[in-house]
Design a protein around this nucleic acid. Structure first.
Length: 281
DNA sequence: CATCAACCCTGAGAGC
DNA sequence: TGCTCTCAGGGTTGAT
């Protein structure tokens, strides 16, 4: 499931290009082929195809888990949700009755020089937008985890202002943008905080440790080009460095206690019952 | 405001 | 072997 580091990796790859695909910066969209209408969120599919036509793609950015490509007019935005992927491919030579699209391709944007930007999404949860004003989406998001204005002090204040379990709070994109299930479990483990810990009972030391753990775990994910889980996103290897995620029954690397799996806010959650104790009072 | 359930989907893995 | 069943998982929406 693409979270902040995976999305960051994909944006970088599209901006910089890779071995067999060019950078998409400066390429023009000649045609949009919508293969699954419900993948297009705004505007309605036909309209979307009309709107993005003949527009040039500018340098991509990431905001939370959104991929944001300004066009020379308007903005093209993707959210990959669970199983979405976004990549550039050369158009293939195919015989007339053979389809040039692949299983689970939902949107294909034909670009300059036979390149195409493909949005592939097996589970169909991902969404695509063409918007005049990207703020329609972004204004709902909390701060970026690496925003310099998100200091230990302001993070502590934010956490104190809520009274709910810490894990669902970290997953709430309106509170903090970019964390998903994997990086949240890993960050709470590093900070030695129980996922069901009530947020306003977290003390300043724990809060400081938590912000530092969030940033460190995300940095590590970015450095390793993200995690490749559920056949989503190829190339990253952070999945080989998980400390608790999907480690149920395996020993904690600090104390040897078996990692447990519980449900918190309807999400599968992995933690060490010895290192991550609830702090009452 | 906090919590919870339903919804959207498919493929993987379990059970038979 | 092959079928059917169950379920994870992010984000949104609506109910309590």
């Amino acid at each position: 499931m693409p979270e902040l580091p995976e999305v960051e990796t994909i944006v970088n790859q599209l901006n910089n290009g890779s071995q067999n695909s060019p950078s998409i910066i400066g390429l023009e969209i000649s045609k949009a082929i919508v293969l699954w209408e419900r993948s297009i969120s705004t505007p309605e599919a036909n309209n979307f195809a009309e709107q993005v036509k003949r527009k040039k793609i500018q340098k991509g950015k990431r905001r939370g888990k959104y991929l944001h490509f300004p066009l020379d007019n308007g903005h093209l935005i993707f959210h990959l949700r669970m199983s979405g992927d976004l990549f550039v491919k050369k158009e293939e030579e195919k015989s007339k009755n053979e389809t040039q699209y692949h299983l689970h391709d939902r949107l294909v944007l034909r670009l300059t020089e036979n390149n195409q930007l493909v949005f592939n999404d097996p589970r169909k949860f991902g969404r695509v937008w063409y918007l005049e004003d990207p703020n329609v989406l972004f204004k709902k998001l909390g701060p970026e985890p690496f925003d310099p204005e998100l200091t230990c002090e302001s993070f502590y204040q934010k956490i104190q202002s809520k009274r709910c379990e810490i894990k669902p709070l970290l997953l709430n994109q309106g509170f903090l943008a970019g964390m998903g299930n994997i990086y949240t479990d890993e960050a709470l483990y590093l900070a030695s905080i129980h996922p069901k810990q009530i947020s306003n009972k977290i003390n300043k030391d724990q809060s400081d440790r938590l912000l530092e753990s969030i940033q460190s775990v995300l940095s590590e994910g970015i450095m390793r080009n993200g995690a490749s889980i559920d056949w989503v996103y190829r190339g990253g290897n952070f999945q080989n460095y998980f400390r608790v995620y999907q480690k149920t029954g395996q020993p904690c690397s600090v104390c040897g206690t078996c990692i447990e799996k519980i449900f918190v806010g309807q999400r599968g959650t992995h933690f060490c019952p010895h290192c991550q104790k609830i702090n009452h009072r």
